[in-house]
């Protein structure tokens, strides 16, 4: 059984930063792994600028930010294992890994979990109606458009004005699509002011607050929703062929369920709590990575 002093699960900005910091603090036995085939987590699909002002002193795109981290990582002896899913982690500090052609057990001293978030799905809301094709989470839409170059639809309705919702409103608009509106149940947009300015105002995309979706219509493909003005209770049918949901992020910690309070485990980045910007997730991860690294230093 292979043994590593430090196992870092998730090679997004947080995971890479934690692994780097641990190495710099003197831990010379670090395995960093990710279920994806390449590193960066969510960053590779974020083609827009706006990352790294704090860390690198300039605004980078997601792939550029990843490249900077990857470059730093290449200068260390951190072992990176892509395409690897962690099936389980046990009390005995043994992780079971699965990747193409191999399932293995691995022993570790400490674990840094940097598994990010998952997106809240529409199924979690009490939204009635059918379950047709044409409903995407914002992150899923972003991946399909930016990495798979797919065409998702023409008439786009976005539910939720968190950062991801607003960024996708701009992305669809830049792709020549018609964003009918961004619906938001709160009194104002949910994400950062910067994204509201750059993504919504700059493109004159209608942001309709105090509104939500009550029912989905369409048999094979979505053809519209019943939306409600929350204060008046008034309803309207909004036709669309694509619904993009930006309903919020849930820290992904299923892997360590029941083990959260173990002293060998640290949670960093968005699986710890949802950060507004990558820099802050990376900074938090680096701080914790450094502390963990010092304890494991030779």
């Amino acid at each position: 059984m292979r043994t590593f002093k430090l196992l870092v699960v998730g090679a997004g900005a947080a995971g890479i930063s934690a692994a780097l910091a641990a190495w710099d603090a003197g831990c010379r036995d670090v395995l960093l792994l990710d279920r994806a085939e390449s590193m960066g987590g969510i960053l590779p699909q974020c083609l827009h600028e706006g990352f790294g002002l704090t860390t690198f002193g300039q605004e980078l795109t997601g792939p550029e930010y990843t490249a900077r981290l990857a470059e730093k990582l290449a200068g260390t002896g951190v072992v990176f294992l892509p395409g690897t899913e962690v099936l389980s982690v046990s009390e005995e500090r043994i992780a079971v890994l699965s990747r193409r052609g191999a399932v293995e057990r691995l022993r570790f001293e400490r674990l840094i979990l940097a598994s990010g978030c998952r997106e809240r799905s529409i199924g979690s809301l009490p939204v009635a109606g059918t379950r047709p094709a044409g409903i995407f989470t914002a992150g899923q839409a972003q991946e399909r458009i930016n990495l798979r170059h797919q065409d998702l639809g023409d008439e786009i309705l976005i539910l939720g004005s968190g950062d991801l919702g607003m960024i996708m409103a701009r992305r669809f608009t830049l792709g020549g699509k018609h964003v009918i509106a961004v619906l938001e149940q709160a009194v104002q947009y949910g994400g950062m002011a910067r994204n509201h300015r750059r993504c919504i105002e700059a493109f004159s995309i209608p942001l309709r607050c105090r509104m939500t979706v009550r029912e989905i219509h369409g048999e094979g493909r979505i053809r519209g929703v019943t939306a409600e003005h929350i204060d008046s209770g008034e309803r309207e049918f909004i036709a669309c062929d694509t619904l993009v949901t930006a309903l919020g992020l849930i820290p992904e910690r299923e892997l360590v369920r029941g083990l959260e309070d173990r002293d060998w485990l640290s949670l960093v980045g968005n699986c710890h709590h949802v950060h507004d910007i990558v820099d802050s997730a990376a900074a938090e991860a680096a701080r914790i990575g450094s502390l963990v690294g010092k304890r494991l230093a030779v």
């Binding site: 047709p132 094709a133 044409g134 399909r144 170059h149 797919q150 065409d151 998702l152 639809g153 048999e219 094979g220 493909r221």
Partner: peptide, 21 residues
């Protein structure tokens, strides 16, 4: 991929337009 459906008639998930680009 544009021919793959979610479930049943008319439930194609993506459009054909950008494929093979």
């Amino acid at each position: 991929e544009s021919a793959v459906r979610k479930d049943g008639p008319g439930s194609e998930i993506v459009r054909a337009a950008h494929e093979n680009v």
